[in-house]
Amino acid sequence: MTKWSIVKRIPVYGASFNSMKHLVLAPADLSWSCSFSGLHSLINTGEDDEELLKKIVNHSESESKFISKINYTNLVEKYTRDGNLSGAYDLLQSLQEKNICLPISVSQNLLTAAGEQNDLKLSCRIFRELLVSVGTPSSSDCYLNLARAFINTDDCTHLSSLLKEISESSLQCRLIVMNRIILAFAESRQIDKVLMIFKQMKEWQCKPDVITYNSVLVILGRAGLVNEMLGLLSSMKEDCDVSLNIITYNTVLNGMKKACRFDICLALYSEMVQCGIEPDLLSYTAVIDSLGRSGNTKEALRLFDEMKNRQIRPSVYVYRALIDCLKKSGDFQRAVQLSDELKNTSSLDLAGPQDFKIHMRSHRR
Results as ranks from 00 to 15, higher is better:
residue 198 F to G: 12
residue 240 C to G: 12
residue 310 R to W: 11
residue 165 E to S: 05
residue 315 S to K: 08
residue 348 L to C: 10
residue 329 S to C: 12
residue 331 D to W: 06
residue 69 K to R: 13
residue 158 H to A: 12
residue 159 L to M: 05
residue 298 K to H: 12
residue 365 R to V: 09
residue 46 G to I: 09
residue 167 S to W: 09
residue 277 I to Q: 02
residue 161 S to E: 10
residue 201 M to H: 01
residue 158 H to T: 08
residue 20 M to F: 12
residue 364 R to L: 11
residue 144 L to Y: 01
residue 118 N to G: 09
residue 129 E to W: 07
residue 353 P to V: 13
residue 157 T to L: 03
residue 252 V to G: 02
residue 320 R to P: 01
residue 295 G to H: 10
residue 228 E to M: 13
residue 154 D to P: 04
residue 174 R to S: 09
residue 338 L to E: 03
residue 51 E to H: 13
residue 357 K to T: 12
residue 133 S to F: 06
residue 286 A to I: 06
residue 226 V to G: 08
residue 21 K to V: 13
residue 336 V to Q: 14
residue 76 V to W: 03
residue 331 D to H: 01
residue 160 S to P: 05
residue 78 K to D: 11
residue 10 I to L: 05
residue 219 I to K: 04
residue 244 L to G: 00
residue 20 M to I: 12
residue 250 N to T: 09
residue 147 A to V: 02
residue 85 L to K: 03
residue 7 V to S: 13
residue 278 E to R: 15
residue 24 V to C: 08
residue 87 G to T: 05
residue 214 N to C: 02
residue 253 L to C: 02
residue 76 V to L: 06
residue 105 S to K: 06
residue 351 A to R: 07
residue 272 M to A: 06
residue 15 A to S: 13
residue 141 D to P: 00
residue 51 E to F: 07
residue 326 L to W: 02
residue 323 I to E: 00
residue 362 S to L: 11
residue 223 A to W: 10
residue 246 I to N: 10
residue 211 I to F: 15
residue 42 L to H: 01
residue 142 C to S: 06
residue 363 H to N: 05
residue 296 N to E: 10
residue 148 R to G: 10
residue 152 N to S: 12
residue 206 C to F: 07
residue 4 W to A: 13
residue 347 S to C: 10
residue 233 L to M: 02
residue 230 L to N: 05
residue 326 L to C: 01
residue 353 P to R: 15
residue 83 G to Q: 04
residue 288 I to R: 02
residue 236 M to A: 09
residue 320 R to L: 11
residue 331 D to V: 00
residue 211 I to G: 00
residue 236 M to H: 06
